[in-house]
């Protein structure tokens, strides 16, 4: 392996952290019991992991076109991924997908049953 500069070593370390968290998120997608828990684990870990990889790429390559595009892409990810997560969660709850057996409380369903639902 060719020798690396100091910022490149730090970039590789941050990239490795990002890949580790990506892996944990995917493991959560496989192991957790129902769709809401999967959504939590997967959204948090994979968003943070991919943002970590992009920041690592920025530190690795410095102030070059690759670095600027990586920063722009990080902002896009951090803004869009929570929005799509709660769109999917609300849609799954409204279309009647059941929660897991371990669930102990659901105030959202109680409030939706109390109020008359308006027609869309």
């Amino acid at each position: 392996m060719h020798s690396l500069a100091f910022n490149q070593i730090i970039g590789y370390v941050i990239i490795c952290f990002g890949i580790l968290f990506d892996f944990f998120g995917v493991l959560g997608l496989l192991r957790l019991p129902d769709v809401y828990n999967r959504l939590q684990a997967a959204t948090k870990c994979v968003t943070f992991g991919s943002a970590g990889i992009l920041i690592g790429v920025f530190i690795y390559s410095g102030f070059t076109p690759t670095g600027f595009k990586a920063i722009l892409c990080t902002v896009f990810i951090l803004l869009t991924s929570p929005v799509s997560a709660h769109a999917i969660a609300k849609a799954a709850h409204n279309s009647g997908i059941e929660m897991a057996e371990e669930t102990i409380v659901d105030h959202y369903l109680e409030d939706m049953n109390n109020e008359p639902t308006e027609d869309k």
């Binding site: 990506d22 998120g25 769709v35 999967r38 997967a42 991919s50 990889i53 997560a85 999917i88």
Partner: peptide, 15 residues
Amino acid sequence: VAIDILGILIIGICA
């Protein structure tokens, strides 16, 4: 959910 997560993972692969 899986398709959405795959999209975010692909960004890491591209970087």
